[in-house]
Amino acid sequence: MAEVAEIAINVKNLNVWYGSFQALKDINLEVEKNQVTALIGPSGCGKSTLLRCFNRMNELIPGARVGGQVMFAGTNLYDASVDPTEIRSRIGMVFQKPNPFPKSIYQNVAFGLKVNGYQGNVDEAVERSLRRAALWEEVKDRLGTSAFKLSGGQQQRLCIARALAVEPEIVLMDEPASALDPIATLAIEDLIRELAPEVTIIIVTHNMQQAARVSDYTAFLMVSEERSGYLVEYGPTSQIFTNPKEERTEAYITGRFS
């Protein structure tokens, strides 16, 4: 890399426990700004747990504990003085299964604006967000209808629009296409590529081809004998997929285990 890249999130010695079970062990990771970073690895390796450390969603689970640091914009997210709701309005999230609110399309996108006390023109912000999520043309004539009337792929793009509406610096995506058909999946992938220049995206995926297609950087995690997740290798996606340093990475990527 020629120029010094800007760091969006810097993870230092991160450990996560659920009760007495250690889910993540000594994770160190620097996520670059306005790039797409994929987290890959076998089931149970803690990819989603790691993702949820970036917007403090883990603490909604009783018994979850986090040790170490997640540096974002110069502060440690786990500092006592940090308000998790403020963090979550700056670091958005899209979930595995589309989870629109049982409200209208418009209300779904406007929700984040309202809870964050948005001062500007809500109509404009809703339109802008739907356009950015490549959904505007499909829904502009029926903003008042229930979000549940949309197809699964449209619902997921609505969830992306909803996350984008609050103008987050980072968007976390937890297997955003795993519940969708191949065409809807491609639409989501295109969208991720389009968003990348303006927003940092961290995506968890089970699908190796997807990671190769959409991401600039890839982090490969594995499960230790004690069932804790740890980071095996992290680097530019092209390097991870064509010339991994670790044999385990190569074994996983070529499908020798999963």
Binding site: N55, M57, L60, T85, E86, I87, R88, S89, R90, G92, M93, F95, K97, N99, P100, F101, P102, F111, G112, K114, V115, N116, C159, R162, A163, V166
Partner: peptide
């Protein structure tokens, strides 16, 4: 999942409850 969606947008507990 609905509660998580709202929390992830920066909603507070009371907002998640009432809205």
């Amino acid at each position: 999942s609905l509660r998580e969606a709202a929390y992830a947008l920066g909603a507070t507990r009371i907002q998640v409850s009432l809205r």
